[in-house]
């Protein structure tokens, strides 16, 4: 037992084994930091979409509802979704323009599923500032965004106007010839 007089100093006596003394402190602080980090994670993650929001994240759609040459707009994940049944003429025009100069070059074939070129599924939100483009308008027969004059072609690619990117193709798959699951 260390000898301490009544007027004990407030300095801890330096032990014979400073490295051992420090190890405990380092281990404690490291454990505290690790514990704090694992505690913070749930508090941060709780702001991520909750299970019921995610449940509505995917939707199934019956393609027989869309006539040829027409488009149906659904609400998906809070945003508009275009499902367009393209005519042969529209597909041909889109493929013919594959090599044309455009802001965001992309082949038409890359924007549809193989063997299902007539079905174009796009998020109906202009990539400029988010307005909903109108069907069939504009110089390229695809869509026209009235807010700032972006023109999209029959493949949803930006051809003229301020939008930087083509209309986004979401994740989707064909469950059958007439049903598609989006998201």
């Amino acid at each position: 037992m260390a000898d301490t007089a009544v007027g004990a100093t407030t300095e801890p006596e330096h032990g014979n084994d400073p490295s051992r003394r420090d190890f405990i402190y380092i281990a404690t602080i490291a454990a505290a930091a690790g514990g704090a980090a694992s505690l913070v994670w749930p508090f941060v993650d709780q702001m991520n979409p909750s299970a019921d929001t995610l449940a509505l994240a995917s939707t199934e759609f019956d393609l027989t509802k869309v006539a040829e040459g027409q488009q149906v707009t659904l609400k998906w994940r809070g945003k508009p979704l275009f499902v367009r049944n393209r005519t042969a003429g529209e597909i041909q025009k889109a493929v013919a323009d594959d090599g044309a100069a455009m802001t965001d070059p992309q082949k038409d074939a890359d924007r549809v599923k193989p063997g299902k070129a007539q079905w174009l599924v796009l998020i109906g939100s202009c990539t400029h500032l988010g307005c909903v483009p109108t069907f069939g308008g504009g110089d390229y027969g695809g869509w026209f965004c009235p807010c700032h004059g972006s023109h999209y072609d029959t493949s949803g690619r930006i051809r003229k106007g301020p939008a930087p990117l083509n209309l986004v193709v979401p994740e989707y798959e064909f469950l059958s010839d007439t049903t598609v699951k989006i998201g």
Partner: peptide
């Protein structure tokens, strides 16, 4: 439904 909601 909320992530870790039960815990909080």
């Amino acid at each position: 439904d909320v992530n870790h909601g039960w815990l909080i």
